[in-house]
Every structure is written in structure tokens, then in C-alpha cells.
């Protein structure tokens, strides 16, 4: 009973935000913004929804897309399937996606993933206290950073994107091949 009330409440919430998400449907340029000076990416060590630890510095030698998101954020939900498609394209190469949920617990994130049409295969990390996001230049969700093989932040994107757009995969492929 309690569980169904919670689910119902969350559905209402999702509806609110999806209602407000109409702006997404408008055509928008698919852009990655170069980060001046390519600063070193702040390291972190977070657990994912399966209980596995992920330390960013352990991925040195790979290109890493770091996506800050939350389950209640409509543009975050909207871009997830395209992120999965990008993962499908590049997962055999030196490329990793780390999607960091901000401020929610594993139960919330897990329930969100099982409700999606597209199963997400890349790691979903939990930053429940918001300590990691505070170390990154993030003002709104979603925000995504592309970190190069040397651990430098090379690009950022504020707001949702269609991540399997050819422009993105070619930029990331070029970084992988560098």
C-alpha cells in the first residue's frame, strides 16, 4: 500500500515534469562546447546501482563521457536512450559512459531503469550527497562532460542532447583514435 502510494506520487511528479518538457521537441543545434584550457577532471570514487565502485582515474587511457542527471529531470530521461545508442556504437573501443545520478538513492534509480523502454547498459553511479557534482562546474541537469584519455575535460554540454548524432560520435571517435 505504502509502496503504491509512493509509486503514484512519483508518477504524478514525472507527469508534471514531462508536461513541462515540450520545449525538447523543438529543433536545437547539437553542440559540444570546448572547455578552455582543458582542466584536469576532478577525480571521484562512486558506487553504481549494482554496488560496483568506479574511480574516474581508473579509466585513464579511455575517453569518458560523464553525465550528471536525475530521474525527475525530463531532458535527462529523454537523452538516455540516445546515450545508450552511443554506448552501443562505441563500447568496444576505449570509451566509457558514467552517468552520475545526483541526490537520489539506488532504489529510486533502479525503479527508473526498469521502467525505461531502452535498457541502460552503461554504469549508473550514485552521488547521493551531491559531493561529486559540487566539484564539477555543473549548474543545471543534465550536464555532460567529455574527458580525454589523459583525464582532461575537453568538452561540455549543458542540457539534453541526441548523443547518437553523427557529429558527437565522430568527435568522440576522433578523441579515441588520438
Amino acid at each position: 500500500m505504502k509502496f503504491s502510494v509512493r509509486i503514484g506520487r512519483r508518477c504524478v511528479v514525472a507527469c508534471v515534469f514531462l508536461l513541462c518538457a515540450g520545449a525538447w521537441g523543438e529543433e536545437s543545434p547539437q553542440t559540444l562546447v570546448p572547455v578552455p584550457g582543458r582542466p584536469a577532471a576532478p577525480d571521484f570514487n562512486l558506487v553504481d546501482v549494482d554496488g560496483e565502485q568506479h574511480r574516474l582515474s581508473d579509466y585513464r587511457g579511455k575517453v569518458v563521457a560523464i553525465n550528471f542527471w536525475a530521474t525527475w529531470c525530463p531532458p535527462c530521461l529523454r537523452e538516455m536512450p540516445s546515450m545508450q545508442r552511443l554506448w552501443d556504437q562505441l563500447k568496444e573501443k576505449d570509451f566509457v559512459i558514467l552517468a552520475i545520478d545526483v541526490g537520489e538513492d539506488d532504489e529510486t534509480v533502479f525503479r527508473f531503469t526498469i521502467a525505461l523502454d531502452t535498457p541502460l547498459e552503461f554504469p549508473l553511479l550514485l552521488d547521493q550527497q551531491g559531493k561529486v557534482v559540487a566539484q564539477w562546474p555543473v549548474l543545471g541537469l543534465p550536464t555532460t562532460f567529455i574527458v580525454d584519455k589523459q583525464g582532461r575535460v575537453v568538452y561540455r554540454a549543458v542540457g539534453g542532447r541526441e548523443w547518437d548524432h553523427p557529429d558527437f560520435s565522430s568527435v568522440i571517435s576522433a578523441m579515441i583514435d588520438e
Binding site: T31, P75, L139, A157, V158
Partner: peptide, 10 residues
């Protein structure tokens, strides 16, 4: 907030 071309927020 700072929005580069194509950036947006909600």
C-alpha cells in the same frame, strides 16, 4: 548560468 550555443536548461 552561462549558455553556449545549443545549451539549455530547465
Amino acid at each position: 548560468q552561462s549558455f553556449a550555443k545549443g545549451d539549455w536548461n530547465m
